Simulated scan of single mutants.
Amino acid sequence: MNFKKIFTADWKSLHAVIKHMHKVSGRSRVDLFRDMYACYKKGYTWMGYMVNGFYKYTDENVRRTFLSEYVDNVKIVKETISPEAREILRDKGKFSEVYKDFLKREVIDLRLSSYDEFSSFIDRHERIIVKKPFGEGGKGMEIYLTSSIDNPKDLYDKLKKNDTTIVEETIVQNEKMSEISTNSVNTIRIATAIDLSGNVTVPYMTLRYSVGDSFLDNASLGGVYSLLDDEGVTVGPAYMSVPYEKIFYSHPKTNYDFMEFKVPQIEEVKSIVKEAALVVKSARYIGWDVAISDKGPVIIEGNQTPSVDLYQTHVHLKEPKGPVKIMEKALDIKLR
């Protein structure tokens, strides 16, 4: 447990979270803070405390069914993903090469590509998206309309200087997926787990989308998410965790109903990640981000340390019970 994180905490955001939980639970701020700190020492994050609903679930037997970020998730990654596999998943350039058959779009890495290759790339595509090779949570991403690029050489030099070296053809989203949120490419976070016998399963799926003007759906940037059932249907309302808990039953701008939205081609989504999971078998657990394009499901990236928050949010649970047992069974791992 890294207690140094206490001193780097975002105290302004933490105050907003405690204020919200005090309002909805009736518990005092002091009581909530003390309880959050006790849970933090067991590996639960400040945000995870709220997302898990620990402000209302106070029974220790209930809480133990929820996964902690700093202890359980760290153990899962350490025991199920080799260092070599983690490096492939961490580096978007290496990932794009190893899993290129599942991307269904063109990607170049400016660490390896010349200016002439970059220039030819932007000539072939109307829009491009640029990313940092080790970026997380959507930070540093930008979209360019190639017809508006006045000086491609200047852009090439700028991207290399800023270490924004992953350049991708943008995805044309499936029409049904655009209904739920028109601004972002809405993605499914879907996990694959390989047990010690080699069986591949999907322990959870979550739909992520935007309710604002951003083209990104990341929860860490104010996006929302809903748990999906095995048929790809949303379970409960959309949930926002940043800057604090908010719940949406419909889109605040379009009034589109979020309840029981069905993701199209969900069996194809499961199929593509199960096949991809076997490419690097030393990565027994991967959290995939998948979009539904006009060409069908496409893999955006694979996450080596997928957050536990997305699949154990209290508003999506039928009963106060977390997924510890589910993950133990899927990965043949002991967590409790």
Rank of each mutant, 00 (worst) to 15 (best):
S25L: 02
K253E: 06
G26K: 08
E169Y: 05
Y57S: 06
G222E: 09
M177S: 05
S113P: 02
T254E: 05
I247R: 04
D35V: 00
L216E: 07
D91Y: 12
V242N: 14
D116P: 01
N199M: 01
N255G: 06
A191W: 08
W288Y: 13
S282I: 04
S197K: 15
Y249V: 00
V185A: 09
D229A: 00
Y40T: 00
T313S: 08
S197W: 11
H20M: 04
T170D: 06
G302W: 01
S82M: 13
N73D: 08
N199Q: 11
S197H: 09
T182M: 09
V74P: 08
E84G: 09
V62G: 02
L310K: 15
P320Q: 11
S148I: 05
N162Q: 14
K253V: 01
S271T: 14
E106C: 06
A238M: 03
M36N: 12
L317Y: 12
E142M: 07
M50F: 03
T187W: 07
K19N: 07
E260Q: 14
E267I: 01
F118Q: 09
I128C: 04
N174H: 11
K153Q: 12
D294H: 08
E106F: 10
Q265V: 03
Y156K: 06
G212S: 14
I76C: 07
V263N: 04
A9P: 07
V71I: 08
Y285E: 04
K253W: 11
T58W: 15
G212L: 05
N73V: 00
K321L: 11
G26C: 02
V224T: 03
A193S: 09
G322M: 00
M240E: 14
Q265R: 14
S13N: 13
K5H: 09
L228P: 02
K56H: 13
D213F: 15
E84A: 13
S148Y: 15
K274W: 04
A219E: 13
E268T: 03
K262R: 15
I166Q: 05
D31I: 01
V211A: 01
L196P: 08
K100Y: 03
E267P: 07
R111E: 11
L228N: 01
L317I: 07
A191L: 12
G198F: 06
R63E: 02
V298T: 13
I81L: 06
E168W: 02
K158T: 02
R208P: 03
L317M: 15
K12A: 05
D72C: 01
I149T: 06
Y49M: 10
